[in-house]
């Protein structure tokens, strides 16, 4: 009996997480608390979703457990117990029902929990396959991504909550001290008012000097001897434009001037163009419901509730206790969530 209990309590976590523990929990420059996350699954996932889970972990790097091992018998409580000492502040849970996969994003000890239905998703591999020159150097995962939230400003309560949740899932940026070289990835969440869907994208950021031909840029970047066979004079190499113009029309908006040099090619003196390339994963999310607690508690928002607004109001008048039972019943009918 004792052995059984012992087995139940144990969460199997490999040493990578322990390393995570040794990471500073507080930003040494700004003194902010660094949010950390666990990405794991509830229930058994098919292969592609497991891949998506891996992609999400990679996206959440560096403040996440990349190799978090989970077992069937691990309950949410297990993760919660570990999250305290580890300083984990957010959970991302993937689950799967007969109708669709679901993603839940929760703040750890207390909640709230946002449940998203994943309408569509593409893995990082799929995205890379779709590109001619996929670019995904491992160094870009050494720093947390920036996050851009767009279209959430309609003033609705659940959207505000979503915004705050996603802002806090990544470490804050202090623009006085931040190094631009550490901003190499960006996560975009775009809310579409008409369809009520959230587009989740993950891009890598690259800076390129404006007005420099491709040839020159390459020679500075690559240290390689250029092929001069076809040229008569060295000056041809510099002067001939070649096919170096890469749709500079819309680049006007996307140029920045830097305070300091960034890499070999991006000098502070010159202007640089911001180039984004998708690395994936890609998701189309639908906010289904928001719960107060960690996967429990009263429902603050429910997409499928027939009297959605009415319920919210009732909720706001803090008559929650009566509502909870009824609402959970409704919700069980409406959404075939497991557990």
């Amino acid at each position: 009996m004792a052995r059984m209990r012992n087995r139940k309590k144990k969460v199997f976590i490999k040493s990578t997480v322990k390393k995570n523990q040794q990471q500073p929990s507080v930003d040494h420059v700004t003194g902010d608390k660094i949010p950390k996350s666990f990405v794991f699954s509830r229930g058994k996932l098919p292969g592609s979703l497991r891949q998506l889970q891996n992609d999400l972990r990679k996206l959440m790097l560096p403040h996440t457990a990349l190799k978090l091992k989970e077992k069937k018998r691990n309950s949410l409580k297990d993760f919660l117990n570990v999250s305290g000492p580890m300083g984990v502040t957010h959970f991302m849970m993937l689950s799967k029902t007969a109708s669709a996969p679901y993603l839940r994003v929760a703040r750890t000890p207390q909640g709230p929990t946002l449940t998203f239905k994943i309408q569509e998703y593409s893995l990082a591999v799929d995205v890379a396959h779709s590109q001619l020159h996929p670019r995904c150097p491992p160094e870009i995962f050494k720093n947390a991504p920036l996050i851009v939230l767009s279209g959430f400003g309609s003033g609705e309560q659940h959207l505000k909550l979503t915004t705050i949740m996603f802002q806090n899932i990544f470490p804050a940026i202090d623009i006085n001290t931040v190094k631009l070289s550490s901003c190499q990835r960006i996560v975009l969440l775009n809310y579409n008012k008409d369809t009520k869907l959230i587009d989740f994208r993950h891009y890598s950021i690259r800076l390129q000097p404006v007005g420099v031909s491709r040839r020159l840029r390459k020679i500075v970047q690559n240290h390689k001897v250029p092929d001069l066979r076809t040229l008569k004079d060295v000056s041809d190499f510099v002067t001939s434009a070649g096919y170096g113009s890469e749709s500079e029309a819309d680049e006007e908006a996307a140029t920045v001037s830097l305070t300091s040099d960034l890499g070999r090619v991006n000098r502070a003196a010159t202007k640089s163009a911001v180039k984004l390339q998708e690395i994936g994963p890609r998701m189309t999310l639908q906010l289904v419901k928001i719960e107060e607690g960690l996967c429990s508690g009263g429902v603050i928002f429910n997409e499928y509730g027939s009297g959605d607004g009415a319920k919210l109001e009732v909720n706001q008048e803090s008559q929650k206790t009566d509502e909870v039972d009824q609402e959970t019943d409704d919700e069980n009918q409406e959404m075939d969530e497991e557990e």
Binding site: L146, V148, S150, I173, I175, N176, V178, L180, C183, I186, L188, N190, D199, R201, Y203, I205, D250, A253, A254, T255, V256, S257, L258, T259, S260, V274, L276, E278
Partner: peptide, 24 residues
């Protein structure tokens, strides 16, 4: 979406530039 993301990045970079230029 790419445009939105780019706009966001440019905004941030410009803000950083402004802030850090002052304390240069």
């Amino acid at each position: 979406l790419l445009g939105v993301a780019t706009k966001g990045v440019v905004k941030l970079f410009n803000a950083v530039n402004k802030a850090q230029n002052a304390q240069k």
